[in-house]
Amino acid sequence: MEEAIVTQNLTKKFKDLVAVDHVNIDVKRGGIFGLLGPNGAGKTTLIRMLCTLLAPTEGTAKVAGYDIIKQDGKVREHIGLVSEKMIMYDRLTAVENLKLFGKLYNLPKDTLEKRTYKLLKLVHMEKWAKSQIGTYSTGMKQRINIIRALLSVPDVLFMDEPTLGLDPQSTTEIREFIKRINIENETSIILTTHMMVEADMLCDRVGIIDRGKIVALDTPRSLKRIIGGEDVASVDIEIPNLTNEMLEALRDQPTIVSVVRENETHLLIRAKGEDAFDDIIDTIRSRNGRIAFVKSLEPSLEDVFLHITGREMRAEVSSKVKSFQGGGRHGPPALSRRVR
């Protein structure tokens, strides 16, 4: 069996809402597959169907070679789930939590003890082994939450937003941990995220999901090439004395595709053509703008999403940008929410 997951027109409807819409994907064994999409795209719903927690309205899927509808018991023997909400009991210690789930997976006593110790050590949590989960920080909880899913050494590991709401340090550590278990245990991993960087960093294949539909499916590299082909450059630039006038002038440059004001002094500019950088610098300097910081950005998956769906992924950015909606510029209406 080569594929960890194959789906066939997998669909879930909640009354009139089609949360997952005829999804056909296949995930190779041993890889890390990223499911990328904004909030409400249907990532969690898709994962829950694959984990046998939710019955599909239409279609089916095979996970680890077993049908999620007809062989749900078999599927459960081969998967692990790190769900969006942590699966742990606050009044139990880490060891007690792991013990409960180890017992549910019929692990023999000594295997359970060995693995518990090994996994706790792996995430540097040995010292906290006998403390109740309720006393942990979110980052610590998530470490236990993840090793809990690894206790049974699953063939396929599902991770729904594994770094959501974590501090930067925990985020980095957990990302490294995910890579490590993928390599060491040859575990196939399917993770969902609404963070482009995460998908970019971790995944060898990415499916972009929007409103329940898979709109793109490829390696992060190939996906980025979709827009990279147009010779587009992205620049992250900081101008301490940024004015609205400067902003308007930048937007009026024919080489500049879009300008996003990240905050008071920060701009994200996308531009086309050979003279793009010159134009940007000249426009700012000629208006006495000081350039404190410039960084050329590779096209990110964020740009890919925007390119494909015509919409910004992060809702909070578009609302910030809205206040700058000034002059009537060209571009598709869907873009104007962000770009103006």
């Binding site: 927690l53 459960r76 023997e77 789930l81 769900s83 699966i87 742990m88 009991y89 789930f101 549910l104």
Partner: peptide, 13 residues
């Protein structure tokens, strides 16, 4: 509601 039931539901029990 809390999401912990999923842990039991997804286990092979």
């Amino acid at each position: 509601e809390f999401g912990t039931l999923d842990g039991m539901m997804v286990a092979p029990i």
